[in-house]
Design a binder for these strands. Sequence first.
DNA 1: TTGACACGAAACCTTTTGGTTTCATATAAT
DNA 2: ATTATATGAAACCAAAAGGTTTCGTGTCAA
Lengths: 126, 126
Amino acid sequence: MSAPSRKTDVFQAIADPTRRQLLSMLGEREMPVTVISGHFPMSRTAVSKHLRILADAGLVKERKIGRETRYRLEPEPLLELKRWLAYYERYWDNKLLALQRFVEGDETDGTITLVAPEENSTRTTE
Amino acid sequence: MSAPSRKTDVFQAIADPTRRQLLSMLGEREMPVTVISGHFPMSRTAVSKHLRILADAGLVKERKIGRETRYRLEPEPLLELKRWLAYYERYWDNKLLALQRFVEGDETDGTITLVAPEENSTRTTE
DNA sequence: TTGACACGAAACCTTTTGGTTTCATATAAT
DNA sequence: ATTATATGAAACCAAAAGGTTTCGTGTCAA
């Protein structure tokens, strides 16, 4: 059970450039919101909302220290991305693609059936 | 130049579950729009728009055959994702994280400075 | 105990997204 | 020629995303 019913999809979470920047920033060290938001051209509240989305995806963890809340990277959910990507690795040596395109040369149904992960097994949004 | 100024961001392109499904479907074989859209609970036009977004991200290639347009997977842009992800691999053996958290034990500025890729080098949206 | 600070929640606004239906055009089939 | 098929473009719409400002609450400092 590597995807423990997270509220937000990892793919969705990393789609936003600001959030990717947040991740790389929090990978370096744990940081409180005000400090983090100092690095962005938007309001603290906006950054806070991005952090919430990342937290909902399990990509960051929060920890309260006195009056401040510190966030840090939680890389684990990225494994889902890694697994997804791993499926496509097989296309990177173009042999398989070359074969397929050869087969596709004629109109018939190709009969090759390999099933990709995701969308059938990784239904987190439900 | 692995990111030849694509119109759409790869991260953005794969954020949508329908589009991920499209990719896995087109990885198997080249297919015309009507056939593809038969597998989805939405209109052909909607699927067509998703295909356009994928094409703008370089993730699919189109090829006209008579009156039909066939689409197929173009995996290359996924390498950007792979590179991005590779950066975070270093966190998966938790040694680095453990070290950081140890350092973070006190309040001082940590001095550890490793720069993540993305957001500085990979500015496609501009 | 009075301020100042750190933060999230709420209400609100604008732009983007994901979808629809309708229409135009190119190609194939009769 | 005429009709049917395959597809994209356009106009439109509702909901989601990404922001903002304002307000309330908890915590630290004087």
